[in-house]
C-alpha cells in the first residue's frame, strides 16, 4: 500500500493523544523543588556540624544518592518518577537511579559483562560528554591564562 508518509506522520502527530504538559510541569516543579529543598536542608545540617562547605556539598550529593539507591532497591523510585517525570530526573536522584537500576537489572547476565558492563548504559553519556565539555573548557581557560 502506498501511504503518503509526510501526510500520515503529520496526521498522527496532530491527532495523537498528548501528554498532559501543564499537569506534568506542576508535578515536576513540586517534586524537583522539594528534592532541592531537602538538599538545602542537608547542606545547612552539615555546615552546622562544622563541616567545610566543600565537603558539605559532596555530602549532600552522597546523601541524595544514598536515598535514591535505597528507593530504587525497594522498587519505589520508578513509581515516584512515573508521576514526577523531570522532577526526579534532573536532580542528582535521576543520575543515581540511572546507575543503580541497570546494576539491579543486569545482575542476571553476570557481575562482569552484565552488571559491570551495563552499569553506565544511561549515565555513561552524561559523564562522557560532561567530562569532554569540561576538558574543552579547560583548554580554552588555560590558553586564555597563558596568552593573556
Amino acid at each position: 500500500m502506498s501511504v503518503n508518509k509526510q501526510k500520515y506522520k503529520k496526521y498522527v502527530e496532530k491527532s495523537a493523544k498528548k501528554s498532559p504538559i501543564v499537569k506534568n510541569c506542576v508535578k515536576a516543579f513540586l517534586v524537583g523543588g522539594l528534592i532541592c529543598a531537602i538538599g538545602q536542608a542537608l547542606m545547612q545540617l552539615y555546615m552546622y556540624l562544622d563541616i567545610s562547605e566543600e565537603v558539605s556539598k559532596a555530602l549532600v550529593s552522597v546523601s541524595l544518592i544514598f536515598i535514591t539507591a535505597l528507593l530504587t532497591g525497594f522498587g519505589i523510585f520508578d513509581n515516584i518518577a512515573k508521576h514526577a517525570g523531570a522532577g526526579t530526573l534532573v536532580p542528582i536522584t535521576g543520575f543515581a537511579n540511572s546507575v543503580v537500576s541497570p546494576a539491579l537489572d543486569n545482575k542476571s547476565e553476570g557481575w562482569i559483562m552484565g552488571l559491570g558492563a551495563k552499569i553506565f548504559i544511561i549515565a555513561g553519556p552524561v559523564i562522557l560528554y560532561g567530562t569532554t565539555a569540561s576538558v574543552i573548557y579547560g583548554v580554552i581557560y588555560y590558553l586564555c591564562k597563558v596568552l593573556l
Binding site: F29, A37, V90, G94, S98, P125, V126, G130
Partner: peptide, 29 residues
C-alpha cells in the same frame, strides 16, 4: 530560592520531554 530554582530547572526539562521526542538520556546530557 532552592525550591523555586531547582523546580524551574525540572520544568524546563519536562517541557523538553513532552514537546520534543528527546529521550531522557539526551536531556541529561
Amino acid at each position: 530560592y532552592a525550591f523555586a530554582v531547582g523546580g524551574a530547572f525540572c520544568v524546563v526539562a519536562q517541557i523538553l520531554i513532552d514537546k520534543t521526542k528527546l529521550t531522557p538520556a539526551r536531556i541529561l546530557v
